[in-house]
Amino acid sequence: MIKNISNLGDSALYCDFGNDVNREINSKVLKYFKNIKKKNIEGITNLTPSYNKLIISFDLKVTNYKILKKLIEDLELNKIEKLENNKIKIPICCEKEFALDIKRLEKNLKISEEKIHEKFFSKEYFCYMTGFIAGLPFLGDLDLSLKTKRLETPRVKIPKGSVGLAEQFCNIYTFESPGGWNIIGNSPLNIFDKTNEAKPNLINPGDTVIFEKISKAQYEKYND
């Protein structure tokens, strides 16, 4: 299922599952990720699944590329491994003060704010991966009419909870961070909880996300 394994530097394996981004390829990546994680292979320090790649980092003091490559190539995948799929509802408020890029989007996509909301809230989104910053989910796929580029100059600070669009994906900034996605609203929900070590991320790869529009009043009362 892995198309090619190569080395990324001297202490990581780069597993390539193809160039396309779709749920089928991503499920293969996640299947490998879950299987390898469960096996607790000696020397592996980190696994990073993404849309269509899996990076396996290891401790060069304990193992090396050749040994691990062989191990992964010979890995027997557990066939019944079913991906956990939780459905998560995310409330977002799209009031002007939170929708930093809505005007830009109206102009670039040539559709109205109402239409953007209609298209955005009518879909369910699949979580392909989490990362960049702690807990940030990469969700897809957006309706084709919402496909858009990143900002040419990324913002230095994007407020915590911001929901952004870029290409065919959307995300949620789990804490204040730099970033270049087009912000359409803000969620009062805490997506990353560092105090919950066993399960810090509310949204995990394989989960489905539904966005729910809330008013400013609901937003303000949300965490009371």
């Binding site: 990324l8 530097g9 990581a12 981004v21 993404s50 269509n52 790649k53 990076i55 980092s57 990362g131």
Partner: peptide, 29 residues
């Protein structure tokens, strides 16, 4: 397409100036 990063990776964005990822790097790039 965004994918994993490890310590020591040298990325080159559009401006042509390399960036070396160090210990607190973003996990995806």
């Amino acid at each position: 397409k965004s994918e994993g990063i490890i310590k020591g990776v040298i990325q080159v964005p559009a401006d042509g100036n390399p960036i070396i990822m160090l210990s607190d790097h973003g996990t995806i790039g």
